[in-house]
């Protein structure tokens, strides 16, 4: 079992649909454990929305790339964009997930969900690109 899938997407929010379809298809053919399809969609959506809205400030005339590599043990994701530098490991504040309703910050949750749901994240800036590599192990696989 192993398959690679690459997507090159314009920096527009209406492209999220293509991400969901690709993840559904890959997850099904690679027999990912239950719950993993949802987590991978969420991770790609959170990061994709960040790239579109923050990385490029809503400018739709760029592209970003997603490569999904699924094998028997794990899924490896590579995200590549030419937006402004953003390292999700250090540039996003840790949200306070214990504070009360009134004090709860509205932002920062997306990246926190990404870091919590995935097993490994590494970031590098290369040739004016953000390159984020993510590993999700198939716990039940």
């Amino acid at each position: 079992m192993s398959r690679r899938l690459s997507l090159s997407l314009p920096t527009k929010l209406d492209q999220l649909e293509r991400i969901y379809e690709a993840v559904d298809e890959l997850g099904e053919s690679e027999e990912w454990p239950p719950g993993m399809v949802y987590q991978v969609k969420l991770v790609l959506e959170e990061l994709g929305v960040n790239i579109v809205t923050h990385g490029h400030g809503g400018d739709p005339d760029h592209e970003f790339e997603i490569v999904l590599d699924s094998d028997a043990d794990a899924l490896t994701i590579e995200l590549r964009d030419e937006g402004r530098p953003f390292n999700p490991l250090t540039d996003s504040p840790e949200p306070d997930v214990d504070s009360g309703l009134d004090d709860r910050p509205v932002g920062g949750l997306g990246i926190y969900l990404v870091r919590t749901m995935m097993d490994e994240l590494s970031y590098r800036r290369e040739d004016n690109h953000n390159i984020l590599t993510i590993v999700k192990r198939k716990e039940n696989g």
Binding site: P34, Y38, L101, D102, G110
Partner: peptide, 30 residues
């Protein structure tokens, strides 16, 4: 995802200010 959570949080705050009760039900596992 987090974009939806943000809306839930804003609605929860609004209803709390009004002393209105707010709850969710029937969430799937993910």
């Amino acid at each position: 995802s987090s974009a939806g959570l943000r809306v839930i949080l804003l609605i929860a705050r609004l209803l709390q200010k009004r002393n209105a009760a707010f709850a969710l039900c029937s969430l799937s596992d993910p």
